[in-house]
Design a protein around this nucleic acid. Sequence first.
DNA 1: ATATTTAGGTTAATCGTTTAAGTTATTTTG
DNA 2: CAAAATAACTTAAACGATTAACCTAAATAT
Lengths: 333, 333
Amino acid sequence: MSTIKDVAAEAGVSIATVSYVLNGTKKVSREVEERVLAAAQKLNYRANSTARNLRRNETRIIGYEIPYPNKGDDASLMQLFVYGISLEAANYGYHIITFTVPERRNPIEHYEHMIHSDRVDGFILTDTNWKDERIHFLLDHKIPFVSFGRTRTERDYHYVDVDGAYGIQQVVEYLIRKGHRQIAFIAWPENSLSGDGRLQGYIETLEKSGLDYDPKFIRRVHNTANAGYEAARELLTQEPLPTAIVCVSDIIAIGAIRYAQQHGLAVGKDIAISGFDDLALAQFVTPALTTISQPIEEIEREVVRLLIRQLNGNPDPNHQILIKPKLIIREST
Amino acid sequence: MSTIKDVAAEAGVSIATVSYVLNGTKKVSREVEERVLAAAQKLNYRANSTARNLRRNETRIIGYEIPYPNKGDDASLMQLFVYGISLEAANYGYHIITFTVPERRNPIEHYEHMIHSDRVDGFILTDTNWKDERIHFLLDHKIPFVSFGRTRTERDYHYVDVDGAYGIQQVVEYLIRKGHRQIAFIAWPENSLSGDGRLQGYIETLEKSGLDYDPKFIRRVHNTANAGYEAARELLTQEPLPTAIVCVSDIIAIGAIRYAQQHGLAVGKDIAISGFDDLALAQFVTPALTTISQPIEEIEREVVRLLIRQLNGNPDPNHQILIKPKLIIREST
DNA sequence: ATATTTAGGTTAATCGTTTAAGTTATTTTG
DNA sequence: CAAAATAACTTAAACGATTAACCTAAATAT
């Protein structure tokens, strides 16, 4: 593998000149420039990025913690996300390095290690929760990052998030237009900010529409189909009976649908059930799932763009971005 | 951020001594060792990995191309895979860097670039196909790699694969025991080696059991629920009618189930349908899916282990590993 | 008592770049 | 026309580690 020295020798110039030509960082005569370019081409030279990084004190690598894939969780959205940010980062000459935090271990240690051993220039965060210590740690240490999803803090940081309340509002208003008055909601546990945003959308839309908001119509469960199944059982074996169940995720909706079907209800007729995410499978379950689709590619683009601007020392002043999701009506409502 | 110089100054020794102590690569007196350790601790020192990599001529980074997520493909297995190899690699002090190859672009270029700019020490490959040019390229250039999935070549390389033929054999034998005689198979297109292995398992098991093998019972489609739906339509609108459909993947099975249900067939009674993969969702579709489960964690462990041994210059002579999957019987058969 | 080995360090070269600070020849300026 | 400015390179010092080669004093061998 050829180094800058080889290219310099081949072109008959000093290594500095080669560097200047290849980086375009200093004026060089046309003739010499061509000689260097030809030599580099001939030797199939590519700069050793380790050496460059050492000298420039950067890595052009972005750290991304892959969230722990809970049993029963669907992970396909996150898979798309890793693909998308890798692709997007490559447009800027950056790469994504993935790491994991073993269950119940302190994440901070791992972030600290990545930074401290100079492995990454910044981070992309997902799966943020109510009080996300990672965000405070990174802010405290002035380490560039962008989060997909918010946390509950007054501090100013860069994030991109989906306007979940808006999405739920769309589906609830649609259900009301179709004549539903008893609308239940299956939510996530309490430390999920995005989950609470969606719940908030449900409550506010009901109130705005002049409908009672009944706490008995709200269930909080983990994000598994099994939990959706159980929640549906509770909702459908109490009074008053809901005529529609809005779910905080497709996975939960699929579990809820399963319970309803097993107990003789025709989903989409006897009862309406909706999800959130628009998984690849959503259109192929029976009945096809009415859901809310997140514009994942736009999210990826924005997240990477915000981070790269920080890394270039040119942060976007408009760095709290809320993206509107889209209601997709299928057969289940 | 403190460097080895700071530690040396703090401990009152040369930087060489610090390096020797921290790496345990030369004998040092107890007293000095303790001073160095204390200084390192006090300054919260961690070696700059860029500098170390430059000197050692390694990166301790493994490249992984995230396959292009085809629309409608389920990607949750791959998500688990990235998580798993990241976790496993960390046990050896390695990290995973992800990259993508834009659709219809030549993958070799991208692999070459990663190697040539010294970003990675080796690769993990997935989604290998019949004639995988990546494998030949990496072999030709003596670049360490391990592939999850085989390709069709006589050349000797390191891989881990699931014994798909064995898995299909399990389900076909089970169906025969339950009395089925007209068993159809929905396969993948022809350039998929793992797909052909599964198909082979179907054909051989039928022949071994003395059943006719009818080419009309075989359909080849892409890995989407939609394609499964269409294939089921073809199979169920021709003579002779199958009483069971074995699918090469859960995704396809879900599409097939949907067609059967829409046309008045009770899946699990009127017709048996099975999948392959055991997606998180498999147990929550209606009816719950009979399928074949891949021991994904064992695969991840083996893939990483084989690669690390290569990188350490100590390749495992037994480096073609076939892992047996497991039949999981649910309601759909 | 002298020569040799060993223990426990230090010095300095090296990895492959980038880039500030020279250097030299040529051009411009007053 | 001498002085100053410019153009086009080169030299050499970093970046932060690792490690071969060297050094010195104490321990061991002859």
